[in-house]
């Protein structure tokens, strides 16, 4: 389970504090694949960053004992001057995969899943946004997490890649929980069972995805 208790996140601006999240308390149960719904700038990405532990709330706590992926997003955690191959190798190392054979196995998986051909050995700055997203997503799938945080990644993939994502997610449904931020309601409906609407600094949890989508569209 991931528990947010009294979480507030703001950014200082010239006009004072700009709240992204204000005193949010939600408990995200394991095993319920969750959609994060909200307009642009509503705070979905910020929420994922807080859950992923790469950003920190100004007040309140985020708690979990589960293994949580980094937020897999469009920008991907890659340095432009390194190749996708080198970036993937780095992520293997920091996740404790340090043996040569084990790294090779992961890299083979990533290369196969991302399916970006020779670009895997080119600097990431030469990638299209779609290729970058594919690489980031493939990389996250190379590791076993209890929770995967997925930020708008599948929406940019082409038909074939989306199909592959679906198969992979379906295969992991029993073991892992997906938290997906997306504007694509079709994708969200296919993957998720529950939904959370992020609006005006609040997060409202719905146990049924259709209810969540309805509430999101109602406003």
């Amino acid at each position: 389970m991931i528990a947010l208790d009294g979480v507030s996140k703001w950014y200082p601006t010239r006009h004072g504090r700009q709240y992204v999240l204000r005193d949010v308390t939600v408990h995200l149960p394991a095993g319920r694949h969750l959609a994060l719904l909200g307009a642009n700038g509503a705070g979905k990405t910020t929420l994922l960053r807080l859950i992923g532990g790469i950003d920190h709330p100004n007040a309140g706590t985020v708690r979990s004992t589960a293994r949580i992926s980094w937020p897999v997003g469009l920008t991907g955690g890659f340095q432009g001057s390194l190749t996708g191959h080198e970036g993937a190798r780095f992520v293997c190392r920091i996740n404790g995969v340090t043996e040569r054979a084990a790294i090779r196995e992961k890299l083979d998986f990533v290369a196969d899943f991302a399916d970006i051909g020779d670009y895997f050995d080119e600097p990431v700055k030469t990638y299209s946004s779609g290729m970058r997203a594919r690489l980031g997503f493939a990389l996250s799938m190379a590791f076993d997490f209890d929770y995967y945080l997925i930020d708008e990644v599948m929406a940019v993939g082409d038909q074939a890649f989306r199909g592959k994502c679906h198969d992979e997610l379906a295969a992991r449904r029993g073991r892992s929980t997906f938290i997906v931020a997306s504007h694509n309601l079709n994708i969200v409906r296919q993957i998720c069972e529950a939904g959370a609407v992020v609006r005006n600094g609040n997060v409202v949890l719905y146990n049924d995805i259709d209810e969540a989508v309805e509430a999101y569209q109602a406003a």
Partner: peptide, 29 residues
């Protein structure tokens, strides 16, 4: 306020050494 994550927040020296080592290889690269 703080965030607790088993892997990231354990302040485990081993994780940190692993990360610094990976970063070093990356910097050299």
């Amino acid at each position: 306020p703080d965030v607790e994550h088993r892997e990231a927040r354990s302040a485990s020296l081993r994780v940190q050494l692993r990360v610094v080592h990976a970063l070093l290889l990356r910097e050299i690269n």
